[in-house]
Design a binder for these strands. Structure first.
Lengths: 355, 355
DNA sequence: CTGAAAGCGCTTACAG
DNA sequence: CTGAAAGCGCTTACAG
């Protein structure tokens, strides 16, 4: 209730009047610009404090010629996966909505298979002096270092696709990786008995001990533990990501474990696994993987792939951009973590899916 | 990528120039106001269409004297529960942030125990011609009718606390009631064996067949089904909500079912149940209920209540207001459903909780 | 170190 | 039916 103070919204003009200066001087103080006598500054600061002045951000944005530039640091669409096309679309959608309010976007693409390219792009971002960053922190250490430098410069950054917790990001928008893997485990449990072995496949040239794919694996395993399933879980990290190398690796795994009944592939490369399965498997295997990509859908249609898990990649990026915008422009509060829904795509429902 | 058209943001001025009229006339057309020659109107409309004119909403809001008034339709704080204090705080927080951008808030409180009071307040809202509504649709039919009338008048409305799906609300912000009950079931399963009976208590004067508390009960039961628990579930709807009546009812239930081991109360009235239990129970019962209220916390401290489930009531209301604001002012997109986290409060962690 | 003035892209009386 | 002008609350050169 309590409202009181309805004194006709106090603004720079009123502050100027009270301080006996011009609004230009008030503006200088508000923005901590130089060229104001210490006394004047103090007096104005006191008034600002007294009346608890809150600038009108709409007016501020409208009058300002300042353009905020946002850097987007995500993987490029590769011939291995065009997953990253969707986030790119989301970014463009955001751009077209907020472009006219003084937000410019600059996109920095790196090669998911090359740590070096990531580092290189972070250097470009730093050099370009941007006002906010949207990034997929695919390489944990490098991202940590990069965001550390952003923090120093007070540049806000938003993580999408995978999170690095406690990194002081403005927020994270993307899947709950653990839950997502857990769900995969759950789905898999329906299709296999207590006996069959299951295979977990992580495909990435840059696999390491804290890769985000491992969080999905962890969730997946947790399901089996929580439900005391007896199934043996075989796992393989594939670092040679070309199809022929992958085929060779999988063939070897299957020669050792011919009784594998189901495969969980922790990213969008499930189509390559499906290709192998079609070619080599004697019996129907249960396949679960990620992402609404054309080639994945093809295998889904043919029932080689049973389930695809998808987490609105376009929306992640769109939301990320809008969050940065609102933070910069409206100084509005931001929720630290925004988990995307975990969508399950099957042969029956894929036509209705929207990213 | 494609951007092209960087033609220095076209605005009313440029439209006026092209149409050979003044910007006032352009403004009239943009807002479908009367008093423009049909020819002029057509010409301007064509130009607007051609250049795909998007008004600068910041400028629009700044220049406009128009004040948007938002109605808030929620239960009053009663002597039965002060749960609704928290949402009220959230509303005030929102108000203080957006008040200066031309948003005025008017609060309409109804009595949770009186359908009539709800109807009465909806009539007042309709009479007051507001521009947006935040409401807790406690009475389903009446809310449905009310929102139907809002829809007719193109007044956006946001549900909080409980949802009525497919009602064309701008969005819902609140708990996933089913999941919340399901979680309660899960928590309860830890504390009781396969034998004991469990009691579900719904306390509301206005209990009916589609009351939202029933969705929590449903989720709760579902947990027991999904996990094939043998426990018998006894249930009681308490419509006489004063403590003495409640005590009587519970005493009767316990005389019939002396082997009840645990109680799930589907709303904040758990403290009354706890009071009864302290007074009458011979052995320790497991109690689970809702909401971070002073009296509930007291029983939590004494371990009479084992778990409280809480879903950020202040945040729900704050978010709801901000969503209406952004929708009205920035025409920004809104996600249809925003589920709040399901927070579990125990004796150990309650001091750290924030609504 | 300080101020007067123009301007951001709209809306709103007011006058004709 | 139409337009000139002031103003929303800021920011930004520019002049002194």
């Amino acid at each position: 209730m309590e409202k009181g103070e309805d004194e006709a919204t106090i603004g720079v003009k009123e502050i100027a009047r009270r301080a006996n200066v011009s609004i230009a001087t008030v503006d200088r103080v508000i923005h901590n610009r130089t060229g104001v006598a210490e006394n004047t500054r103090k007096k104005i600061q006191q008034i600002i404090k007294d009346i608890d002045y809150q600038p009108n951000l709409l007016a501020s944005r409208l009058a300002s010629k300042k353009v905020y530039s946002l850097a987007v640091l995500i993987p490029e669409v590769s011939n291995e996966t065009d997953y990253w096309e969707a986030p790119l679309n989301g970014i463009q959608r955001a751009e077209s909505e907020i472009g006219k309010y003084g937000i410019k976007t600059k996109i920095y693409l790196f090669d998911l298979n090359s740590r070096a390219s990531f580092i290189q792009q972070t250097e470009r971002v730093m050099a370009d002096k941007v006002d906010g960053v949207l990034l997929a922190p695919s390489f944990i250490e490098e991202s940590t270092y990069f965001t550390y430098r952003c923090k120093e410069r007070k540049i806000p950054y938003v993580f999408i696709n995978s999170d690095i917790p406690n990194q002081d990001s403005l927020c994270y928008i993307g899947p709950d990786l653990m839950k997502s893997g857990y769900l995969a485990g759950h789905l898999m449990s329906y299709g296999i008995g207590e006996q069959g072995k299951v295979l977990v496949v992580n495909i990435s040239k840059e696999m390491d001990n804290h890769h985000h794919l491992l969080r999905k694996e962890e969730g997946f395993r947790k399901y089996f533990e929580d439900h005391q399933r007896a199934n043996e879980i075989v796992k393989v990290d594939v670092r040679q990501t070309e199809y022929t190398a992958l085929e060779e690796t999988l063939a070897e795994v299957f020669s050792i474990h011919p009784d594998i009944k189901a495969i969980f592939t922790t990213n969008s490369r499930i189509s390559s696994v499906a290709r192998f399965v079609e070619k080599s498997a004697k019996e129907k295997l249960l396949l679960i993987g990620y992402d609404f990509l054309k080639e994945n859908i093809e295998y889904l249609k043919k029932e080689t792939i049973d389930f695809l898990i998808c987490q609105k990649p376009e929306e992640q990026a769109y939301r990320g951009m809008m969050t940065l915008y609102q933070h910069l422009m409206l100084a509005s509060e931001v929720e630290k973590v925004h988990y995307m829904p975990i969508d399950i795509i099957t042969k029956e429902n894929y036509t209705f899916y929207s990213n």
